[in-house]
Structures are given as structure tokens and as C-alpha cells.
């Protein structure tokens, strides 16, 4: 797997915004509307996805919406991911995935239990294999990338 030449690593997801921030926010937001408003806003922080990367290689299959995924491997060994989707909720959930997985070395990334994080946010059903919205395939694709880079 090749890393994208386009630099999208200067973004808050997984750098200035951490999972702790997401957990704190969720604690304060007690109804679903506020939580989803937060998820939608987080999705707006995704850096723009380069049009040139919207190709078959980067397409994530198995989604109701169209989903693309690229990654960039930094010189310091940190992996950055970028996801795009035409569904707004999927973008928001993807942004949470990036908060959790961005800015780690591949080996560290592979050790992160994303299911547990989503469980804590009470969002697990969105990434469960039964939902069929492709977030599961997105996560496997990320893990494949990390495994390849770690090897």
C-alpha cells in the first residue's frame, strides 16, 4: 500500500482533539440530538479529500454510502488516515475513528480496541458487522494498512 503524497496530517483529529475530548463531550451531552450534532460537527473537521484520490484503489466496498480512505506515513513513523463519505453521519463516525487511530505508529494503532471505544460512546451498533454501513470494512482496511506498514 502506498502512502498518499498529499499532506493532510495537519488536522485536529487525533492531534489536538483526542478521545478524552470526545468522551468528555459525550458525558455532557445527554440527549441523542446533541450527541449527533456533535458527531456531525466533528465530521466537518475532516480535511478535504483530494479528488485525485477518489479511485477504485481507495474505495471502501460494502457501504450504503460512498466511502474513500487514504493514509499517509510520516517520517517520524506516525500513521495518518483520511476518510471521506457522502453520508454525513458516516463522516462524523469516521472522524471519531480518526481521533482514535490517527497519529500513532502502526504497531500502537493495532493495539487500540476501537470496539471498546465505540462501546463506551454507546455507538458500537454503528460499527457492528450487522449494520452494513461499511464502517466495519473501513476499520478492517485501516488495520490492513497498519499491518502492512508495521511489517
Amino acid at each position: 500500500m502506498t502512502t498518499s503524497a498529499i499532506d493532510f496530517t495537519k488536522n485536529p483529529l487525533g492531534t489536538s482533539t483526542t478521545m478524552e475530548d470526545v468522551f468528555d463531550a459525550f458525558e455532557l451531552l445527554d440527549d441523542w440530538e446533541d450527541r449527533y450534532a456533535f458527531i456531525i460537527d466533528l465530521g466537518k473537521q475532516l480535511p478535504p479529500f483530494p479528488d485525485s484520490e477518489r479511485n477504485e484503489k481507495n474505495y471502501v466496498h460494502g457501504c450504503q454510502s460512498q466511502v474513500w480512505l487514504i493514509h499517509h506515513y510520516e517520517a517520524d513513523g506516525k500513521l495518518f488516515l483520511l476518510i471521506d463519505s457522502d453520508a454525513i453521519i458516516v463522516r462524523g463516525l469516521a472522524a471519531i475513528i480518526l481521533v482514535a487511530l490517527n497519529n500513532h505508529e502502526p504497531r500502537e494503532l493495532l493495539a487500540i480496541d476501537i470496539d471498546e471505544l465505540f462501546e463506551r460512546l454507546d455507538l458500537f451498533r454503528h460499527i457492528s458487522p450487522t449494520r452494513g454501513n461499511g464502517l466495519r470494512s473501513m476499520i478492517s482496511k485501516i488495520r490492513d494498512i497498519a499491518s502492512t506498514e508495521a511489517a
Binding site: Q64, D86, A87, I88, V90
Partner: peptide, 13 residues
């Protein structure tokens, strides 16, 4: 909105 956004947010309700 994407249809899946509508489905997800109706499910919440």
C-alpha cells in the same frame, strides 16, 4: 442528506 443519514437518525427516534 444521504438516505443512510435519514435511516440512522430515524432509528434514534
Amino acid at each position: 442528506l444521504h438516505p443512510s443519514d435519514i435511516g440512522t437518525l430515524l432509528d434514534q427516534q
